[in-house]
Computed example of a mutant assay.
Amino acid sequence: MLLPIAALLAGLLMLAWSGEQFVQGARALARHGRMPPLLVGLVVVGFGHSVPELAVAIWSAWLERPGLALGNAWGAHIVNIGLILAVTALLAPVRLRSQVLRREAPMLLAATALTAVLVADSTLSRADAFVLLAAMGALLVWTVRQPRRHADDALAREIAADDAPAPTRSLGAALLQSLVAAAVLAGGSALLVWGTAAAAWLLGISDLAMGLSVIALGCALPELAACVAAARQGDDDVVLGTVLGAALFNLLAVVGLTAAIAPADIEPQALTRDLPVLAGMTLALFVLARRRGEGLLRRPEALTLLFAYGAYLAWLLATLVPGGGT
């Protein structure tokens, strides 16, 4: 039992380090390629922090553990809203000024509805994967077009300010950083998947439950650090961009790739326990994001989200007991 736990912890540490390093390397490469700073920032803020979840999903599907990949993707979505956004808002109220993000919130709600429709038959097929990945492709096209349409947007100003400096490292150094990070990312995700699968088998716990709890929380730590740092600097829209972008990427790209590699049946608990919580968290975020006025998320609302996540986690942990319904 010690070896699987050691592999799980080592994998999480490797993912935490390599995910951030990969994003930094990719950003530096994009700057050398003279991509617009705002475009680079939008992609990194929106999707870059979900690279660990993507690596875990690919390995899980390749090793025929799709439940682990699905649990990780859905669990990360719930963690992003119920824990990361809530904890960040407890430090300081989060205000939404970006019109780009106001339009992303309905997209997230639509992606959640699409997911619910596709999994209603308790399966994730390659046809479902095609639909999810096509939606992700359309979203990427929309994201690429934002810098030209919204150069004066609040999020645009924050990201442009962060990405304004010229590259500080050579092209070779940026490429080496990206390659090393990608290798560590692959190794860390492989260790994490093996350790989690082995621990789940020894404990009699399902892959889905492990993905929703241990893996989702572990992969979310870099995003939590990024959001807290942005909140302390007053970059509220960067906080929301991280949460919304990661949620969209997990629902569409991560789940889509999982189904493309390894179509699978979905455990009943995922539809009766986890999907309603995911939809509820998404609806709460949508209502907050579309609400008029300066304040998006204040401490009382953050505490409500945090309490809801705590109740869900307690419910989930209760099912981790062998024979408890997983």
Score class of each variant (00 low, 15 high):
L283W: 10
G204E: 10
I81L: 15
L179Q: 01
R149K: 01
P37L: 05
R299L: 07
G241H: 04
G48P: 11
A164T: 12
A253E: 06
A127D: 05
A127C: 04
G41M: 08
L248W: 01
A73M: 12
V228W: 12
T196Y: 06
L303V: 13
A120G: 01
G324S: 12
V144L: 02
P165F: 03
G204F: 03
L317T: 05
A216C: 08
L203M: 13
S213L: 15
L285F: 14
A311P: 01
L2M: 12
L224A: 06
D128H: 09
A7F: 14
S213T: 14
I81W: 08
L70G: 12
C219W: 03
D237K: 00
L224R: 12
E53F: 06
R95L: 14
T326L: 10
I205M: 09
T282C: 12
R290V: 04
M107S: 07
A127S: 12
R299M: 09
T196Q: 09
A302T: 02
V277A: 15
L275G: 08
T272K: 03
S125M: 06
I81Y: 07
L42R: 04
A181N: 01
L91C: 11
A186G: 15
L297M: 13
P36Y: 03
T326V: 10
V23Q: 10
F307S: 14
V277N: 04
A16Q: 02
T112M: 15
A28K: 02
G324H: 06
L244M: 12
T258S: 14
I84G: 12
A302K: 06
D163G: 03
D162V: 06
P165D: 08
A10Y: 00
L224Y: 07
L212C: 08
L124V: 09
V214F: 14
E267N: 03
G323C: 03
L171H: 03
F307A: 15
P300H: 10
A311E: 07
A183Y: 00
A10P: 01
L217H: 09
D274H: 12
A173L: 10
V45P: 09
G324I: 06
Q24W: 02
L191E: 04
W17C: 00
G256Y: 10
G75M: 14
L29K: 07
L171W: 15
D163H: 13
G19H: 01
R299A: 14
A289V: 08
V56K: 05
G11M: 03
L68D: 06
M35R: 11
A76P: 08
E20N: 07
A110V: 13
P263Q: 11
A216M: 10
A182D: 00
A154S: 03
A302N: 14
L179V: 15
L212M: 15
I84A: 09
L108G: 11
A230H: 10
A151F: 02
S206D: 09
G195E: 03
L140V: 09
P106G: 04
R31L: 09
G280R: 12
T282V: 15
D152C: 00
A28F: 06
A76E: 10
L296T: 04
H150D: 13
A110I: 10
V243R: 08
G204L: 14
A231F: 03
A284C: 07
A86H: 08
V45W: 05
R290M: 11
F22N: 00
L3P: 02
D128T: 11
L8W: 07
Q21L: 05
